[in-house]
Write a protein that binds this DNA or RNA. Sequence first.
DNA 1: CGTTCTTATAGTATTATAAGAACGGTGCCATACT
Length: 496
Amino acid sequence: MDKKTEALNKYFGFSSLRAYQEPIVDKLLEGTDTLAVLPTGSGKSICFQLPALMKNGLTLIVSPLLSLMDNQLQELRAKHIKAAAAYNSFMSPEEKSRVLRRLSSLKLLYISPEALSLPFIVERLKEVNVVMMVVDEAHCISQWGHEFRTDYLKIGPVREAVGNPCMAAFTATATPEVQLDIKKQLRMEEPAEYIHSVDRVNIALFVQRCTSEREKKKELVRIIQNAPGPGLVYVTSRKKCEELKKLLQEESAHQVEAYHGGLDNEARLMIQQQFLHGDLDVVVCTNSFGMGLNKADVEFVLHYHFPKDAESYIQEIGRAGRDGRQAWATVLYLEEDIIIPQMLMESELPPVDELDAAWETAASSRQEETTADLINKLGWTETAARFLAFYLEKHPRKRKSELLEDLEEKVQQRRFEKEKKLKVMVQWLENSNTCRRRLLLQVFGEALMKRPDPCCDICGSTIPVRKQPGNEKEKVTAPWEMRLQELFFGKEREHE
DNA sequence: CGTTCTTATAGTATTATAAGAACGGTGCCATACT
């Protein structure tokens, strides 16, 4: 038995890797930069966990959400893998300093891009042997890095600071442009690439054009009444989230809840757990819901508002049909809904005619207060302020005139890129001739090889009805307090 | 850009309608002490 198989067996209890995992593990073992686009729920974490455990030194896993770190750690703990830890703000000061002290005895450290960018963390990492860095959900680099969470763009520089270890990026969805962006930001040079199809053949795709908000609501109610669920309804505002929750609670027999960033952590955890355990049929949510959701039997994803680009769309519908059974996704398309993503996009970028004022403001504040000052003195959104602060930090020595000129161009460039993505999304919705699946795959640089049945509305399919299994397994309902307890304080859970 | 809420006016008791304004998503983060 070779070393790899031995380790696989020892740590994970498997006798062999799946065909697509094998080459990725090999590349990482030999220290080659790797970009992998793999469908969700396909055992991608083992692709980096195994090499990390076999290597001599520390692997950093950059993860976008604390809950994702927590999930993966629970899984590792369940397999009695001890050399793994997280560093994040959810931990007590004691726990944090303990982790930093025992870094050299760890194999895996889960960390957010923000924590990874803290100067004292970088200094500490320089003292230990970092052999590999992994960016999980790497599309976040492109989706969030440029404005919302600019620390995503600092992963590349940190990599260089800690001795340029091997870099791996994993995601389930990336267009060719996003792949390029990931490679550039992470400073990957000629990485090995494993790009799998983003097509989910068991999800049928539909778009239903509506002419008014009222019609859309009626259609929503009709569809949900007839869908046994479980399913998700995506909207782009918190208010709408709550409103539609109420509507569906009144008009359908389903258990319905709303999920968005305005809820506190406890409520969010609760809803996610209830949905996971089958105690909720429908969750009306904003784009905050779904990442890391490990639920196999989601039957449908309904977009009450359409998302701002095709990647978000693929990601969101990808939460359906993980169990391989027939699932469907439908968009209730109302033309004027385009204004919401447009406004949100606009609010992420600095107003071009205030760049001069922003420069003056920044010049008179300390670096760590630049963002706050831009928000308070100029009334900018947090995201726009962060965008500017990041840019100034990156180019500290540029002359004012030159900097403002560059900045304006950069803002226009970003606006252009975002608008283009939105336009592609709308074109997809408006299209009435070409198979939706074919067109969607085109955005990801893929050709449609084989059309599944059902495929999409344009191919003549209608929303499939799932046969209900006659003898559903009995629900085991533990008190909620107990489940929350498990989540906060941990309890070994089995997975897979 | 449309929805939804607030304020203003009309004109006269209680409400009706118009004009104006606000709003619309994603999450992470060392600090105080000698």
